[in-house]
């Protein structure tokens, strides 16, 4: 049965690469906020935002850490935008095997932007005084039960790939671990 419609506020961060000056303050504050205890240390290599930066080619792309992926993608293309050449990875949010970005430098565990959970506003946005990063909020109607649906789609695709038995085994094993 399809659920009722529900209003949900979606927070997105708008990135204006033209305003970025490459200072990496966003990386500093992000890694500092996520240190344990909070702010006790900082290390841009742990940041969940990365500024892909190549000043001589005028490339400045702040990228937010997204999902973890087990495998790197097959083909990697190059983009030319306004006469500037970008690697495809320049825009990719994945924590993936082919690069060090978005992984804890010591453990290699994947990092993901959590929009600074618990804070009034994303701190990278607050610390970017030149407004290259800005929060945009919009309301969206979502159907309840959508997540369930998403989960099922995901499972199905996995079952297609590995067979249902293997998936069941994996789930049993994972739940025993907890």
């Amino acid at each position: 049965m399809k659920g009722d419609k529900k209003k949900k506020t979606i927070k997105t961060i708008k990135i204006d690469v033209d305003k970025c000056n490459g200072c990496r303050a966003c990386e500093v504050i992000c890694s500092s906020f996520h240190a344990a205890p909070k702010y006790s240390s900082n290390n841009p290599a742990r940041s969940r935002i990365r500024v892909i930066r190549d000043p001589l080619r005028d490339v400045y792309v702040p990228v937010y850490a997204g999902e973890y992926t087990v495998a790197e993608c097959a083909g990697r293309d190059k983009y030319t935008i306004d006469g500037k050449e970008y690697d495809e990875c320049s825009f990719c949010r994945a924590s993936c095997p082919s690069r060090d970005d978005f992984k804890e430098p010591d453990s290699g565990l994947p990092l993901k932007c959590d929009m600074c959970e618990g804070e009034d506003e994303p701190l990278c946005v607050k610390w970017c005084l030149v407004d290259a990063l800005q929060v945009e909020e919009r309301e969206e109607e979502v159907e309840e039960g959508e997540e369930q649906e998403e989960l099922e789609t995901g499972l199905e695709s996995l079952a297609d790939k590995y067979g249902m038995d293997k998936i069941k085994d994996a789930i049993t094993r994972l739940s025993q671990k907890d």
Partner: peptide, 27 residues
């Protein structure tokens, strides 16, 4: 001037990338 640029962790962007026609870029 292609862009005004900052040092590490600073919003002041006192520097710039300079591309003179026909010459390599510098800052």
């Amino acid at each position: 001037r292609t862009r005004l640029i900052s040092c590490f962790n600073c919003p002041m962007k006192c520097g710039a990338t300079i591309s003179m026609p026909g010459l390599p870029t510098y800052m």
